[in-house]
């Protein structure tokens, strides 16, 4: 896997952490997924691999359509503002990633680059969940994590599993469907799809 693709994935992830509009965020995640599809196809050496690429593609487009649909249906009167500004978000994400990479030391996937990239993407995803309030963006954070993990699955020595990849795709779609059901209900109950409003359960 070449460095360019990895850096592209990471940059898209960083953009995802910083971005303000939900539509753009969906686009970024989809772009990542499409890169993965391309990568999977370029590496494909068997039918299984191709099917995996297909599953990835399905997931990329399926989720994109679902999210765009959601955004259309739930129009926020005032946009949900993150608690922390974009630059700080990026700063947190980058520093956390660096710290984690340092802590991981030599624990790597096949190539150090990929493993670091996966780590960074997972951290970016988690940081998105931590810092964003819009429910959709939190889901996108999880999709970001999954994108990173899909990347790792593609480079696992001994090969990924067709069964599991399809399963992951289905899982992710299922999760997104459930999340969208919640998103709708939250939007209609609270008047805004803002996770910051979800604070009645505490001790």
């Amino acid at each position: 896997m070449n460095g360019f693709v990895i850096w592209l994935m990471i940059l898209l992830g960083l953009a995802e952490v910083m971005v303000k509009r939900r539509t753009v965020a969906v686009g970024l995640v989809t772009a990542q997924a499409l890169i993965l599809v391309g990568f999977a196809i370029s590496e494909a050496n068997s039918i299984d691999r191709l099917i995996i690429a297909g599953a990835l593609a399905l997931r990329a487009f399926g989720l994109a359509f679902l999210y765009i649909y959601l955004i259309r249906r739930t129009h926020e009167v005032t946009p949900v503002i993150a608690s922390i500004g974009p630059l700080s978000r990026a700063g947190i994400a980058i520093s956390l990633s660096l710290a984690l990479i340092w802590l991981f030391g030599s624990t790597t996937l096949v190539t150090p680059d990929t493993s670091k990239a996966v780590l960074v993407l997972v951290v970016f995803g988690v940081v998105t969940v931590i810092t964003r309030r819009a429910t959709l963006l939190q889901v996108l954070g999880i999709v970001l994590i999954e994108n990173g993990l899909a990347l790792s699955a593609l480079v696992i020595p001994g090969g990924s599993s067709l069964f599991i990849e399809i399963g992951v795709t289905l899982d992710l779609i299922l999760m997104s469907l459930v999340a969208s059901a919640f998103h709708f209900r939250i939007f209609s109950e609270f008047g805004t799809a803002n996770a910051g409003a979800l604070r009645s359960l505490r001790d």
Partner: peptide, 14 residues
Amino acid sequence: SLLASKIPVLGLNG
């Protein structure tokens, strides 16, 4: 997936 990468021969399937 980190674990899988350390069990090189089998891949996720195995």
